[in-house]
Structure formats: C-alpha cells, structure tokens
C-alpha cells in the first residue's frame, strides 16, 4: 500500500516535471530557457499554495464552531509566538531569494545578444502592421492593410542560428509577441531595442501585437516561418530577386 503510494507520487512528480503546465514548449532556445524557469516557478507556487491551502482548510475544519456550542465561547486567547513569526518571515525570504536568483540567471541568458548573429531583421511596427527589413539580404516585407482573417506579413528565420531582431515603432507603442517563442518586446517610438531569436523548431508560428495601439490592434498579426538554413539562403536569394 505504502509502496503503491510512493510509486503514484513519483509518477505524479515526474509527469509534473515533464509537463509545461500550459506554457508553450518554446520554439527558440530563449523560449525554452523561459519555459524551464516557468516550471521551477509553477512547482514552487504549487508547493506554497498547497501548504497555505492545507493550513486554511485545517483551521476551518478543526476549529469550526460546532452545533450546539455556546455562541459566545472564545477561542484560546493567544496573541503571538515569536519563533513561529520569525520562521514564517524567514522561509518566504529564502524562497524569493532562490526564485529571484533563478530568474536573474535566465534573464541574462535570454536577453544576451550574440556577437555574431547569422542574420539581422529590422522590424518596424506601425498602426496597423509590420515591416520586416533584412539589410544584409536586401529584403523588405510589408504588411498588406490589416483586416480580420489576414495572416499578415511573414517573417522568415533560419533554424538553429541566432537572428538579431532590431525593433522600432513608427507611431505609437506596439509590442512584438510570438506566443510560441514565449517572448515579447515593446516597440516604442523614438527608441530602438534588440533581441535574439534562435529557433529550435521548424514551422509556422502566430505573431501578434501585444500592446494596445488603437482601432485595429486586434488584427495587427504576423506569421513567423522557421526554415532550414539552406532553405533560408534560397528564400533570401529569391526574395531579394
């Protein structure tokens, strides 16, 4: 019986560790790093919430006023317990220090810029669409006017190699978000911001504007297509035409 319980518990823990708890797996190296951090945070959250919920449930059930009990009966009138209070302050401190450290390390990796990216895309957001320029390959891709059902312009990235995205905005604040890559960055007029994407999966992924930017914000979408590096070269030659 006890062995069965241990097996079940182990199975639960292992399946929990392999689950992403609803988070996308991450179609880039950066996205996978973020997803791993997410797993750490979710497990910590489940542990903390589990303990707190159990304490609340126990208090409510064990110390409920029972039927027929004197309505004015008092509970035990204790006010404090200093060692306990120190403990319940120190334990959360330890937890957040650990989580903050993990987050800091992941952030450094995710926002690190490769000194020698395979290619560079200058992405410019405008109300309401996107312009993707590959300066090295001399390619320019611009949104057709946004409307519902229109997938928007296609951003092509080579698999397994870092692509530098240089993000700008032409008018109001937008945000470049590819949910499958677990990553977004705001496009702010008057500022330039850069990040790297290193795709790990072939395919097409949905991209959206994540910062409210006016009337057609909801349909300001784009598509990311990840291809093999050779296919990328071929596509670039053809697109530069």
């Amino acid at each position: 019986m006890r062995r069965a319980a241990v097996v079940v518990a182990l199975a639960l823990v292992t399946s929990a560790c392999s689950s992403t708890f609803g988070f996308p797996e991450g179609g880039t190296q950066q996205g996978r790093d973020i997803r791993e951090l997410w797993t750490v945070f979710v497990l910590a959250a489940i542990a903390v919430a589990g303990v707190v919920y159990a304490l609340i449930a126990w208090s409510l059930l064990r110390y409920r006023r029972r039927r027929g009990e004197d309505p004015d009966a008092l509970g035990r009138q204790f006010h404090a317990n200093v060692p306990l209070e120190v403990a319940y302050t120190a334990i959360p401190v330890a937890i957040v220090v650990a989580l903050f450290s993990a987050s800091l390390l992941t952030e450094r990796r995710v926002t690190a810029l490769d000194p020698d990216p395979a290619t560079t895309v200058e992405a410019t957001a405008f109300a309401w669409g996107w312009r993707f320029v590959y300066p090295e390959e001399q390619i320019e891709i611009v949104s057709p006017p946004s409307r519902p059902g229109e997938p928007g312009p296609e951003l092509v990235l080579p698999l397994g190699e870092p692509t530098r995205v240089v993000l700008r905005s032409q008018d109001v604040i937008h945000a470049f978000w590819v949910p499958a890559f677990n990553f977004k960055r705001d496009a702010i007029p008057g500022r330039t911001t850069s990040f790297d994407l290193t795709p790990t999966h072939l395919g097409r992924f949905r991209g959206v504007c994540a910062e409210f930017c006016g009337l057609n914000h909801a349909v300001m979408t784009f598509t990311v297509r990840v291809v093999e590096p050779e296919a990328f070269e071929a596509w670039a030659r053809e697109a530069a035409g």
Partner: peptide, 16 residues
C-alpha cells in the same frame, strides 16, 4: 504575481 515578478516569465505573460 510572483511569476510575473520574474522578467523572463513576464516576456511571455505580460499583456496576455
């Protein structure tokens, strides 16, 4: 809220 306090997770979760 703790999850959103971690900038890398916020990169996915912010404005969602």
């Amino acid at each position: 809220g703790i999850m959103l306090a971690a900038p890398p997770l916020d990169y996915h979760l912010n404005d969602s």
